[in-house]
Design a protein around this nucleic acid. Structure first.
Length: 571
RNA sequence: GCCGCAGUAGCUCAGUUGAUAGAGCACUACAUUGGUAAUGUAGAGGUCACGGGUUUGAUCCCCGUCUGUGGCUCCA
């Protein structure tokens, strides 16, 4: 609530025209004209969130000022222009009436609400004749002291890590492996959001490294866009209307911001930042984007369905002629990337319009027909099997999706390629063609991993935690047989570490058998054991994961072998 | 969000027909100095998810909440 208090010789006002069509219903029987002399004119704007407490505070302030300047007459004057965050007219009228009722000690004149008014006044001009006031509701902020120890402990008890009912899960369930291998965790304070531990984050980063390399070669330009953006942007993109119940929002200096649930609008703004010609197309803007979506709580599931996810997103702007070529390139990215992990049991689907509800789709029929054909043609040319999913298309365009199964046989969508006929129009995305005509490009949204979270869940189960060397967080475990070989083991470990390998040492006083068992449970790719013999000959005894053979070799040979395995991305 | 199930030590679990809890593993110490999936002994570790109710007394019974989980719906 904001007020501007003016101590005046006189004021005259007259309503000219309704500012609100419904003003007669909201505020009936208002005086449309009036005047007062020797008065305190209180220009008032009621704001969102105002309540009885704000009214109370404001009335106190008016009384104070009136007493100080010696005014017996008060003019309550609705003045919306004081605020850009107005309450609804209904609430404003209600609170105005409450204010009026609490000013019975004074002779009160009220200017009408909801009208454009002409007014004339003469301010006295003394130091207290113009005073502005603001009344904010500060919640129940009783004390500023920190919590007591007891209060803090009580809250701490409520912040517990997430429990997991493992009774129905398979042994290779990513939730079990993730905990055993110390890859990530969850906590009650952040449902559907991952706490990445060092080892899990290593996997994520390796996947992104590889993705960057592939995309650079494929002609993508990597970008990064803000995490929260003004509501206006989401109104333009259409997300506010269709998706806002899934979006987290936050206020900043009276502006409403939304945490991005998708990366597209940011990409649109980068495109629009400068004029584009056909020579700029196809333009491929990629982004490792962290998005948040309010999902239904019952749908959350480990890494497979989360609230905060990291998308390996990209937006491709191209001409109609370039579409076919771009579709082929994207599909090749999909298969190339999945090939790295030895997936066989995955399937493509094409989501098309349902025949019945043709009116719910944006864009004309010929565009849709050719787009649907282009997707199918792409898969046909690459000899990939797929099924059609009629009615599964988004309202803005058809899509080509890739489904992979988890340990419980459920299918999850990972890669997806979506054609979009709507967003370029909404954002006024243009390019100039060869003839100087202004054209709208076709937009492709695509992700390859989908979400890094889901993808890591999928490969963890698919590989049963046995990650290939190039992404493995547990590459080499060095084991000593006795105290005499401890220093030598440390030396080996340091050497491997300095050569860039992920290596750990277990020099505890335990049996070799036990240390091997522990390293095996942690899915170390290699176990390097050293004892008196190795120390003497300057060698190591190497055992590969899941193999029984033990090979004695020099450290140099071992390192070369590891390098080769990493570079080849061998499974 | 809806329906069902679950939450006891870091992990896997036992337990109390209501009197504030145990084991194995992991951890720490000591002994042991070993050769490829578990060496021995000892110690430490818990407001029994959180909040309320019933009761002389609640980890246990009742209600609510949170989180997880399977399914539905939805999605990357």
């Amino acid at each position: 609530m904001k007020t501007l208090n003016l101590h005046c010789d006189y004021i005259k006002f007259k309503a000219l025209k309704k500012a609100l069509k419904t003003v007669d219903e909201i505020a009936p029987n208002q005086n449309l004209e009036g005047e007062a002399t020797e008065c305190l004119v209180v220009l008032t704007a009621i704001e969102k969130g105002d309540n009885e407490q704000a009214v109370e505070n404001m009335v106190e302030s008016i009384k104070d000022i009136a007493n100080q300047v010696g005014a017996k007459n008060i003019v309550l004057y609705p003045y919306a222009h004081l605020s850009s965050n107005l309450a609804s007219p209904k609430l404003a009228v209600k609170l105005m009436n409450e204010i009026a009722s609490k000013l019975s000690d004074f002779k009160l004149t009220r200017a009408p609400f909801g009208y454009y008014k002409s007014f004339e006044l003469k301010v006295k001009g003394h130091p207290l004749s113009e005073l502005s006031r603001e009344f904010q509701i500060v919640g129940n902020e009783e004390k500023e002291e920190d919590l007591s120890d007891e209060e803090r402990k009580a809250l701490l008890r409520q912040i517990s890590k997430a429990t997991l009912d493992t009774s129905k899960l398979k042994d290779n369930d990513h939730r079990i492996i993730g905990r055993k291998m110390d890859l990530w965790s969850f906590n009650n304070v952040a449902p559907g959001m991952v706490f990445w531990h060092e080892k899990g984050l290593h996997i994520k980063h390796k996947l992104i490294d590889s993705w960057r390399e592939i995309h650079k070669i494929a002609g993508y330009h990597e970008t990064s866009t803000p995490q929260i953006m003004d509501r206006k942007l989401w109104e333009v993109s259409g997300h506010w209307k269709l998706y806002h119940e899934h979006m987290f929002t936050s206020m900043y200096e009276k502006r409403e911001f939304a945490v991005k649930p998708m990366n597209c609008p940011g990409a649109m703004l980068i495109y629009k930042n400068s004029p584009k010609s056909y020579k700029d197309l196809p333009l491929r803007l990629s982004e490792i984007g962290v998005v948040h979506r309010k999902e239904l709580s019952g749908t959350l599931a480990g890494l497979f369905r989360v609230i905060q996810m990291t998308q390996d997103d990209a937006h491709i702007f191209c001409t109609k002629k370039q579409l076919h070529e771009e579709v082929l390139k994207v599909i090749n990215l999909f298969t190339g990337l999945l090939g790295q992990f030895g997936f066989e049991d995955y399937r493509f689907t094409i989501s098309t319009r349902s025949k019945k509800k043709s009116d719910k789709y944006l864009g004309d029929n010929t565009l849709w027909n050719s787009a649907e054909k282009t997707l199918a043609k792409g898969l046909d040319e690459l000899k990939l099997k797929y099924t059609n999913e009629p009615g599964e298309a988004k309202f803005y365009g058809p899509s080509l999706d890739l489904q992979i199964k988890d340990s419980l046989g459920r299918e999850w969508q990972c890669s997806t390629l979506q054609l979009d006929f709507a967003l370029p129009e909404r954002f006024g995305i243009k390019y100039t063609d060869e003839n100087g005509n202004e054209m709208t490009p076709i937009l492709l949204h695509r992700v390859v991993y989908g979400s890094l979270e889901r993808f890591i869940g999928i490969i963890t189960e698919h590989l049963n935690g046995k990650f290939p060397m190039w992404i493995s967080p547990n590459q080499v475990m060095v084991i000593n047989t006795n105290d005499d070989s401890k220093d030598y083991a440390k030396k080996i470990k340091e050497d491997l570490f300095n050569s860039g390998f992920r290596v750990e040492i277990n020099d505890k006083n335990e049996s070799v058998g036990k240390k091997v068992r522990e390293a095996s449970i942690q899915r170390f790719n290699y176990i390097a054991t050293v004892g008196g013999g190795e120390k003497e000959k300057n060698t190591i005894a190497v055992k590969k994961r899941d193999e029984k053979d033990i090979q004695t070799m020099s450290l140099e040979d071992f390192k070369n072998m590891l390098k080769e395995e990493i570079d080849s991305k061998k499974l």
